[in-house]
Amino acid sequence: MGVETAGPDLSSAMWRKSSRSGPNCDNCVEIAFVTPAIAIRDSKDPDGPALILAPDGWSAFLAGTKNGEFDL
């Protein structure tokens, strides 16, 4: 049987969208820095699940995004 660990408390997280999203973005990704992790969620579903990344994972995600690894 696996051991479950509690993730960071997101109830008081300060979520933000990219400044490139524009003021009326209804289909955006939001992030929150919740020490020691970074949380990512869909702005259309703020009460839904959030992806939690460790700092190294966040750095790898940003590098991959900048390098076009996720382009279609």
Rank of each mutant, 00 (worst) to 15 (best):
I31G: 00
G22L: 03
L53M: 12
V34W: 03
L72C: 09
P23I: 04
G2F: 11
A50M: 07
F61S: 01
G7Y: 14
S19L: 09
T65Q: 06
G22F: 00
A63E: 15
N27F: 11
L10S: 08
G48A: 07
R20F: 05
D9F: 10
G64V: 07
L10M: 01
I38V: 15
D56E: 13
R41I: 03
K66S: 02
A37T: 14
N27R: 15
A54W: 05
P8Q: 04
T5R: 15
G57T: 01
K17M: 15
G22Y: 08
D71F: 04
C28G: 04
L62Y: 07
G2T: 15
D9W: 09
S43K: 09
M14C: 12
M1T: 09
S12C: 03
E30M: 00
D9P: 06
L62H: 04
T65G: 12
K17H: 06
I38G: 02
V3R: 14
A54I: 12
S11V: 12
G7H: 01
A6D: 13
K17L: 08
A60W: 01
P49R: 12
S11E: 11
D42H: 04
K44V: 05
T5Y: 15
N67V: 04
A13P: 05
G2C: 11
G22Q: 05
F61R: 03
I31V: 14
E30S: 00
S21M: 02
A60N: 07
R41T: 00
A37E: 11
V29R: 08
S12W: 09
D71C: 06
N27D: 15
G22E: 00
S59P: 08
S43V: 12
G22A: 04
S43N: 14
C28H: 03
